Simulated assay, not measured.
Amino acid sequence: MRIALYNLTTTTKIGGVESFVWDLARELAQRGHAVDILGGVGNRRETAPGVRVLTFPFISRRFWQAFPLLRRAYAEAKLLERLTMAVAALPTLVREKYQIIHLQKPYDLAPALLARRLSGARVILGCHGEDFYRGDTWLARRVDAAVSCSRFNAQTIAGRYGFMPEVVFNGIDTSLFRPQPPDPTLRERLGVSSTVPLLLFVGRLQPWKGVETAIRALCHIDQAILVIAGDGEDRPRLAAIARELGVSERVRFLGSVPRQHLPALYATVDLLLATSYASETFGIGPVEAQACGLPVVATRFGGFPEVVAEGQTGLLVPPRDPAALAAAVNSLLSDPARRAALAAAAPAWAAQFAWPAVVDRIEAVYRAVLQTN
């Protein structure tokens, strides 16, 4: 098949959707498909073997948000950003005669559907969140198929668009994310002894990721160090909260950590904390951690209950509840045998998210739409 994976931020940012596109492209290419990634001009220089990367200029959403009427119109600013890239990308979408144009955001529906009319390609809408805007419902109902990263997200999409997407969980590379020995140098670099519990958060530092809850929970957890792997706009506020609570010495900001270095982190810490309370439709961090044999304490929100087997590979707690988070963490830190049992069960549970199974399901969707007239 000749496949276009079309998503502006794949080539400009790092995140769950972006990693999904790179990994999917690599896996499809390994199966003999001709795969192009179409994204925006940016600083990200990642490559995938056998995959062609095409980039196009665009006008950033920040430009549009400088206009008073768009200052708080987040969805509309993102839509305009995407449409400016589409002006440059549309000739390629048509000329290359793709069989499949796979989108990751509904902001790209209009150019993809126009390319379908001009080239005969089939359009697949990938659903990862709630990126809705005025007019998207009319466009979305004209795609050839849709896939969603979780049942939680599929229900949200069904409520908006009136159809149920095929649920295809995001995938992980189990050759990278697998159990391995702890990194003996990590505790040295952090300046902590082997007896101090290490709690880990991995992700972008946005308010809705709930890292504030994890910091506040430290007040109820003896000695533990919270290691934060990620960066973002919320970092200064989080650092200020830690200082106000008197726990700043127990919070370590590592900044952005390359994905290939995450398995060593997962192998060395005691628990992963996943604390989101909004916009979390899947949860790639908890899946990667479990594949490495690390138990998870996550909020009972969004896609987390689908990717964490409660009582078998981790625990679920109410969102934005530091006391509940601390109680769950303390229960596991005080019971090494139970924590070891969760860790032992985690890799087998996470195996269902391995890329071969995910790509099998995506290929089935592609084949099905190509067989329809």
Rank of each mutant, 00 (worst) to 15 (best):
L125K: 03
C127W: 13
H128S: 15
G129A: 11
G129V: 06
D131Q: 15
Y133K: 09
Y133C: 07
R134D: 04
G135Q: 09
G135T: 06
W138I: 07
L139H: 04
A140D: 01
R142T: 01
V143H: 01
V143R: 02
A145W: 06
A145K: 02
A146D: 10
A146L: 14
C149N: 13
C149M: 15
S150Q: 07
S150R: 14
R151N: 02
R151I: 05
F152T: 12
F152E: 13
F152Y: 14
N153K: 05
A154R: 00
Q155I: 04
T156H: 04
T156V: 06
I157A: 01
I157W: 03
I157N: 00
A158D: 03
R160Y: 01
G162W: 08
P165Y: 13
E166S: 12
V167R: 13
N170M: 07
N170S: 14
N170F: 10
G171F: 10
I172W: 04
T174H: 11
T174W: 10
L176E: 13
L176A: 15
F177I: 11
R178T: 13
R178N: 07
P181R: 06
P181K: 05
P182K: 14
P184H: 05
P184F: 05
P184N: 04
T185D: 13
L186K: 12
L186R: 10
R187W: 11
E188Y: 10
E188K: 15
E188T: 10
R189W: 07
L190I: 15
V192Q: 14
V192G: 14
V192D: 15
S193Q: 10
S193W: 04
S193Y: 11
S194G: 08
S194D: 15
S194P: 10
V196T: 15
V196L: 06
P197S: 00
L198R: 13
L198D: 11
L199P: 02
L200R: 12
L200V: 14
F201T: 00
V202I: 09
V202R: 04
G203Q: 00
L205I: 08
Q206W: 14
K209H: 10
K209I: 12
G210Y: 01
G210M: 05
G210W: 07
V211L: 11
V211T: 03
E212I: 07
T213F: 08
A214T: 09
A217F: 01
L218E: 03
L218D: 05
C219K: 15
H220G: 00
H220L: 09
I221D: 01
Q223F: 08
Q223S: 12
A224Q: 05
A224I: 04
I225P: 04
I225T: 13
L226T: 01
I228Q: 02
I228M: 06
I228H: 03
I228K: 02
A229R: 04
G230N: 05
G232H: 08
D234H: 11
D234K: 12
D234A: 13
R235I: 10
P236N: 09
P236D: 02
R237H: 06
R237P: 03
L238M: 01
A239H: 03
A239G: 14
A242K: 01
A242G: 00
A242H: 01
R243F: 08
R243N: 09
R243G: 11
